[in-house]
């Protein structure tokens, strides 16, 4: 990482979270959204899936504590738009995600939070997930700029959505200030919309 907002590279040990179509209700069950801040969300990450009869089970998040790179399968984060889900992952320690594919709102939320979410094919993902199982202390690096992931002796090419890459590398993933600076252009746009009355 270079500079405050520039995210060119993230790394650390990995955690495999296998399964397709993992929805945000699983990642962060709705009953834990009754808080007005995101501060405690890490405590609720995959709350139900990680427990049997109230006790921690062998869910990967229980076995790979301290991991920074989550490795997921296809259509991860589908369903509800709740940012609580990637917030919980981030606060638990996830700095980057490698996977087959993401639901769009989830990916957008990752971008808003500065979490690179890169993709590769099924076989490559499964190999990486197995490698983590065998190498729980092994380092995984996501090179956002060069679209590469390296672990052990292996380096793989990955893909990252153009806008996400640009935003992370250039450090412009927090879009509020950027869009705020276009206030006058917004006024021009709204002037042509018959349903928008001037807000004074």
């Amino acid at each position: 990482m270079s500079g405050e907002n520039h995210i060119t590279e993230v790394g650390g040990t990995g955690v495999p979270i296998p399964g397709d179509d993992i929805d945000t209700d699983q990642i962060l069950p709705a009953r834990f959204m009754k808080e007005v801040t995101f501060d405690n969300m890490a405590d609720y990450l995959f709350y139900d899936a990680r427990r049997d009869d109230g006790e921690f089970n062998d869910h990967p998040l229980n076995r790979f504590d301290g991991a920074s790179i989550a490795v997921i399968n296809s259509n991860f984060g589908c369903g509800s738009s709740r940012e609580h889900a990637p917030q919980a992952m981030m606060r638990w320690g996830v700095d980057g995600i490698v996977g087959e594919s993401y639901a769009e709102i989830f990916r957008d939320n990752c971008k808003s939070l500065g979490i690179p979410a890169v993709t590769t094919d099924h076989e490559t993902v499964v190999e990486l997930q197995e490698w983590i199982e065998d190498n729980p202390d092994g380092e995984i690096d996501i090179d956002v700029e060069n679209e590469e992931v390296s672990y052990g002796d292996t380096t793989i090419d990955v893909e990252i959505d153009d806008a996400m890459k640009e935003a992370l590398v250039e450090g412009i993933w927090d879009t509020t200030a950027l869009m705020y600076s276009n206030r006058s252009k917004v006024e021009e746009t709204t002037a042509d919309l018959p349903y928008v009355e001037g807000d004074d």
């Binding site: 153009d162 640009e166 879009t175 276009n182 917004v186 349903y195």
Partner: peptide
């Protein structure tokens, strides 16, 4: 009609004409 500008990321800045807010996702 709602596109304000193209952002450096390549995304569009899109004006939102109706913003609906509820208690769960807005306090933060």
């Amino acid at each position: 009609k709602h596109k304000v500008a193209e952002l450096p990321s390549g995304q569009d800045q899109l004006f939102i004409g109706l913003h609906l807010v509820h208690e769960v996702t807005s306090p933060q």
